[in-house]
């Protein structure tokens, strides 16, 4: 069979791989959003900007300090996480007692500041970031050619997503997190320092965005607006999956990435909007989202 539905298999698998890579980023980003939302009730509009900051930290480390990809993979998420801690402690914390919409507005303002500042400093054009030596080249899978770096991105994101899932659903720390999401007052009354947990949760959630930024740097260029439109798609992913479930966020992210890839093959004009259309359909059929619970 040289053609599937009139499409050469190389093109099909190529687009599916691209979809899978996009899906990996959706999964990583929506996972972070879901963790933050669960604990803080904040829709983190700054998530896309912090993803961009992650990529930029990697680029800056390489350009000015000569720290390469592997170093950046550790340092950039830590840096973004630290920024998150500061934001939570100095700003978000003041808003927990008022309408949750203010958290969204605050983080929107922060996104404008981050994106505006980097744009002011580095312009809109992208900065290239090299693929690390170890992951150059590719593998011929017989039915398609797989660039090693892209395979690595999918594998690494999956690993991080599943690791996060395991940490939240199967460990003691995760039990604290789940309990505090449900009833923070009682968890505090058991002697756990919930405000610190909240800060760390936000830090961790945005660190995931930072990590996604580093992973993305060699694929897309490092540019100030790289997270700006991406984050809206991720919001749609989150609405489709529902905020209730960690695994739901991962599965929905990957699934929608693949669907987008398919759309690129069969109906390229619609590939940008397919996620939004699916969101509308899901909302009509199941308002709480595929994996969500009504709150």
């Amino acid at each position: 069979m040289s053609h599937l539905f009139g499409i050469p298999p190389q093109a099909l698998f190529g687009q599916l791989l691209l979809g899978l890579i996009n899906g990996s980023f959706y999964a990583l980003l929506s996972l972070g959003l879901a963790v933050i939302f669960g604990m803080l009730n904040v829709v983190n509009m700054a998530h896309g900007a912090l993803y961009m900051v992650g990529a930029f930290v990697a680029w800056l480390l390489l350009t000015y300090l000569g720290v390469g990809y592997w170093g950046a993979l550790v340092l950039a998420p830590l840096a973004v996480g630290a920024v998150g801690l500061v934001l939570e402690r100095t700003m978000l914390r003041r808003l927990y007692k008022v309408d949750h919409l203010y958290g969204l507005l605050l983080t929107f303002g922060l996104a404008l500041i981050f994106e505006g500042a980097f744009r002011h400093q580095y312009g809109v054009s992208g900065q290239p970031y090299p693929i690390p030596e170890l992951l150059k080249g590719g593998i011929n899978l017989g039915f398609m050619y797989l660039p090693t770096y892209r395979g690595w991105v999918v594998a690494a994101s999956l690993l991080v997503c599943l690791g996060t899932w395991f940490a939240i659903e199967r460990t003691k720390l995760g039990a604290y997190l789940r309990a505090a999401t449900e009833n923070p007052t009682l968890v505090q009354a058991f002697g756990i320092n919930v405000p610190v947990m909240v800060s760390l949760t936000y830090g961790f959630g945005v660190a995931l965005a930072g990590l996604a930024g580093v992973l993305a740097a060699p694929i897309y260029q490092v540019s100030p607006l790289m997270g700006s439109n991406l984050i809206i798609v991720v919001f749609a992913v989150v609405v489709i999956g529902g905020m209730g479930s960690i695994l739901g966020a991962i599965v929905t992210g990957l699934g929608l990435g693949l669907l987008e890839g398919l759309a690129k093959v069969f109906y390229p004009e619609a590939s940008n909007i397919v996620v939004f259309v699916i969101m509308a359909v899901v909302l009509m059929v199941k308002p709480a989202g595929l994996f969500g619970r009504e709150r």
């Binding site: 303002g109 404008l112 500041i113 505006g116």
Partner: peptide, 12 residues
């Protein structure tokens, strides 16, 4: 955008 963002943050 930076100035607008700062006003946003201060307002909120």
């Amino acid at each position: 955008p930076v100035v607008i963002g700062c006003i946003f943050v201060v307002c909120v």
